[in-house]
């Protein structure tokens, strides 16, 4: 069980706000942090990692106190059992992939673990390459396994998949799921990508202005519990012609034969029944 109760003043581009969070997460769970930028998601990750100190708070992880400002306890980042994957990967440019991993290795030289991890993300052929010669997806995979070298209890991911194309994203989602199962990790991930959150996270914290505004499964937080049998689209009328009304919806123009007193520029909704929709798989 991970208990978090923290307060911290935030100086954001949009003005000062206060981060106040009080929540509990299950051990070995996969939690997604969702919310607009500047809401305090990355700050929360860094506070958990010990990279930022909150003014007040307590963090307890599986019975161990990492932070307690009242008792002046503050475990340094080095002593917290965490792996952190940064948004910009933060691979050390002066070291090869293997050296990056070896750097993370605690005193004992367990090179076998490094090879296993490289194989787990299919990067064994890139061990001697410098990070700057790798693609975004490859860097991300190295950053991910480097964060796991110390076998942390908790893995913190700051928008790990945001820089990747769809194929790479799916690929890494599989890797993350597999690592989550195999290593019994508690994962906390910042993400803006709803399908990703739906697929990976067992728990979602929606964060706004430094506060948790919703907490639950993806379905509960995003209101997907009940499926609907009709959908509504928002659009704007471009022209009114005898053959129909031209409506701009998501950069596409639909002509709808609908009688009425329409004006160019009217904001409208378009409703259709789910039974009429067709699905087609993209290549």
């Amino acid at each position: 069980m991970i208990k978090i109760n923290i307060q911290k003043k935030l100086h954001m581009a949009g003005g000062d706000t206060a981060l106040r969070m009080n929540t509990e997460l299950e051990a070995n769970s996969f939690t997604a942090l969702y919310g607009p930028s500047g809401a305090g998601k990355t700050t929360l990750l860094k506070i958990l990692a010990g990279l930022i100190q909150p003014e007040h708070g307590r963090i307890e992880v599986n019975g161990q106190t990492w932070l307690d400002t009242e008792r002046s306890i503050n475990l340094p980042a080095q002593k917290r059992s965490i792996g952190f994957v940064f948004q910009d990967f933060a691979l050390f440019p002066n070291m090869t992939v293997m050296e990056n991993l070896r750097y993370a290795l605690p005193d004992r030289k367990d090179e076998r673990l490094l090879l296993q991890l490289l194989e787990a993300v299919s990067m064994q052929n890139f061990a001697q390459r410098k990070p700057d010669t790798l693609s975004g997806g490859q860097k991300q995979r190295v950053a991910l396994i480097r964060a796991l070298v110390r076998k942390p209890q908790m893995l913190l991911l700051d928008e790990p998949l945001s820089a990747l194309d769809n194929e790479m994203r799916t690929n890494l989602q599989d890797v993350l799921q597999q690592l989550h199962r195999e290593y019994g990790l508690t994962i906390i991930m910042v993400s803006h990508h709803l399908p990703e959150i739906y697929l990976l996270a067992s728990h979602v914290l929606q964060i706004q202005h430094g506060q948790i505004v919703k907490s639950g499964t993806a379905g509960e937080v995003f209101g997907w519990e009940q499926s609907v049998n009709s959908i509504t689209l928002l659009g704007e009328i471009l022209s009114v012609d005898p053959q129909g009304v031209k409506v701009l919806v998501n950069n596409q123009v639909i002509i709808i034969a609908a009688a009425g007193n329409w004006q160019i520029g009217d904001k409208v909704t378009i409703a259709c029944q789910a039974a009429d929709l067709t699905l087609k798989k993209l290549l």
Partner: peptide
């Protein structure tokens, strides 16, 4: 980038190790 130093800290390395090796 600050993340280089932060990454080294989260990998358990001291300030001196971070400074001289990263």
């Amino acid at each position: 980038p600050a993340s280089l130093q932060e990454a080294s800290q989260t990998l358990g390395k001291s300030s001196a190790q971070t400074f001289f090796r990263v």
